[in-house]
Amino acid sequence: MKNYTTPILILFLFLVIAIIGNITISAIGLFFNHDVFNTGVYANGYEASLNIKLIFMAKAFALLMFIYSVYILIRNLKFLVRRDFFNNKLVQCFSKSGKLFFFSGIVGFLASICGILNIAIIKDFGSQAYLNIDSKSLYIMLMILGFFLLLFSKVLDKGNEIQQENDLTI
């Protein structure tokens, strides 16, 4: 198991760089009216609307919650390496990560739906290129993963309870 920690940390670093890079580039375009993607929308003094900025901030918040949740999981890999499966900290880690995954999935998915409605109803096409920092299927997967982690934490908690009862009877 120890052999997997280095590749996991490297992949996590790539994930953080990619997400923070996307958020930074989009923020420069939306909040500083700099045409990073050369879309031509800022040529005539166009400024991104408040609703696009709010949708972007919700998506960025969801992605940052996702990074934090993955960080919590990686930080607690030591319990899995030591095969300490019934540790209360590990159970709390899975529970907290599951809640964060689920909540970030909901926030991101709702922000994506608002982005679609922004195009369909308000017809605000101007800065849509800067909102493409996510995928709706990613957010659905995060919700599923969140449920799985919550369920897994309940299983580990029940296993911990049985282990403690078993230790008391011996």
Rank of each mutant, 00 (worst) to 15 (best):
V81Y: 07
L73Q: 13
I10R: 02
L54T: 00
I28E: 03
T169D: 01
I170S: 12
I119Y: 11
L30R: 04
L110A: 10
V70E: 10
K96V: 12
N87W: 04
N88D: 15
G115Y: 01
I20E: 09
Y4I: 05
Y71N: 11
P7W: 12
L50C: 00
E161F: 15
G29P: 04
I52P: 00
D84Q: 13
L30V: 01
L150P: 00
F102D: 04
I170N: 11
A43Q: 09
A62L: 09
G105Q: 09
Y4S: 12
A43R: 07
F31A: 08
I19S: 11
L77T: 10
K59C: 07
G105M: 08
S127V: 05
I162C: 04
S49N: 12
H34I: 10
L73C: 15
S97M: 08
V81F: 04
F102N: 09
A60N: 06
F125V: 06
T39P: 02
A120T: 12
I25K: 15
V91F: 04
S127W: 08
G40I: 08
I28D: 04
N44V: 00
L80T: 03
I162L: 14
L15F: 15
N76S: 02
I23S: 07
M141W: 12
I52L: 07
G115K: 01
N76F: 00
F86T: 14
K78Y: 10
F101D: 11
L131Y: 04
M1R: 08
M57E: 04
F102V: 05
F102A: 15
S97V: 10
G105C: 12
N33E: 11
R83Y: 12
F125R: 08
I170W: 02
I72A: 03
L150I: 14
D35W: 01
Q164Y: 00
S69I: 05
D84L: 09
E161I: 08
S135L: 07
M141L: 15
T169C: 04
D167G: 02
G45E: 01
K123L: 07
F152W: 04
G146H: 05
I8A: 13
N51C: 00
I72Q: 10
S112V: 07
V41E: 02
F31R: 03
G159N: 14
